[in-house]
Amino acid sequence: MSSIFEPSIFTVPLSFEAHAIAQHYQKQQLLPLKAKQVYLNTLAVYAVDFYLRCLGFEVDANQNDSRNPMIVKMMDVADLWVKQLGRLECRPVLPDAKVCEIPPDAWSDRIGYVAVQMSQTLKEATLLGFTQTAMAKVPLSNLRSLSEFLAYLHQLQEVPLTAPPAKVVNLRRWLEGIFETGWQSTEAILGIDMNLVSIRSMTILKTDIKRAKLIDFGMRLNDQTVVLSLAVSSNIDGTISVLAQLYPSSGNTYLSPNVKLVMLSESGETLQEVYSRGHDNYIQIRPFKGMSGDGFSLQVGFNNVNVTEDFVL
């Protein structure tokens, strides 16, 4: 794959691979306008991904909200996770546009915004420049140059991140009715109330709070998806009890064999591990409880592809 580099812009050919990825995510949308939005967003992310890799930066597409089907369905995001730096927003710009539009969905948790102009034929995408400031419409004439962008990224590299790159899910806030993006009711994700097993090791002050999230293993595993579900309860002694379960996605009766659910400590040590068998309609790890501030991770794995969610009590 070739590219054209100029001092102020960078043009990326949008190959068959780029359009195949865009079509993959477009097909998940039912509404035509949303499908078009997702298609252009995906091409913009591809172009910035290509540019950064050419410059030697490492990216991790698995951290992208723009690769999460549930988030994409509800929000207009075109983010790209850059290792050691943070989350960039890659906004597509139409050929005759005078401004780069940034939706409110992308106004936070971003280190910057890159304007990516599409050619009329969608055969090329040109990085025009960037801005650090989120606003509804940024005039293209006000964008900072790519040479400034490169200097800005190197400057960020010199400042260590003070927080882990992964989003940490705060389960204590669930008890207050506050939920992170992507975590929905079990009914919304699975279609029916699965009536998760209640945790009864301690007297419960509040009814179990149950939330579920779709875990997508991506194109490498033929769109294989599963549902991670958690039930959370508060106890008289101030601890929080947790039950984690894994279900097949809506429309499937059983999990594929050898899907794993692993509980990890904050240091990465395996605390619990369970695998699905041939006819499991769900799997779960043993219920556990912890004190406020305790952290842990849940890892869902299949065919050497792992997706990890981090939690704090």
Rank of each mutant, 00 (worst) to 15 (best):
R87P: 00
R87M: 02
S66H: 00
F50Y: 15
T131D: 04
K73P: 00
S141D: 08
W81L: 13
M75I: 02
V138W: 07
L88G: 02
L52D: 12
L140R: 07
D79I: 03
C90D: 03
F149M: 09
D49A: 07
M74N: 10
R67Q: 14
A134D: 05
Q132C: 08
E101H: 12
K137E: 10
V138M: 14
P164E: 15
S119K: 12
N68Y: 01
Q84F: 04
A151T: 11
H154E: 13
V93A: 09
L55G: 08
E124D: 12
Q132S: 09
R87V: 09
S147C: 02
M74S: 12
D49E: 11
L156Q: 12
L140C: 14
T126E: 08
P164L: 13
Y113D: 07
L140F: 14
P139R: 01
V48R: 01
L88S: 01
V168F: 05
L85Y: 04
N62Q: 14
R144N: 15
Q132F: 02
L127M: 08
N68K: 11
L122T: 05
L52I: 08
G56M: 07
Q132W: 04
C90Y: 08
Q155P: 00
V93G: 08
S108T: 15
C90V: 10
G129W: 01
V114G: 03
G112A: 07
L80D: 04
L55V: 07
P104M: 05
V116H: 03
G112Q: 01
L150W: 10
P160W: 04
V48Q: 02
V159E: 14
K98A: 07
T126Y: 11
P95R: 06
L146W: 07
R110K: 02
V48E: 03
Q63G: 02
K83C: 13
S108L: 12
L153V: 04
I71S: 06
P104N: 06
Q117Y: 06
T126C: 10
A163I: 09
L146I: 01
L156K: 15
I102L: 15
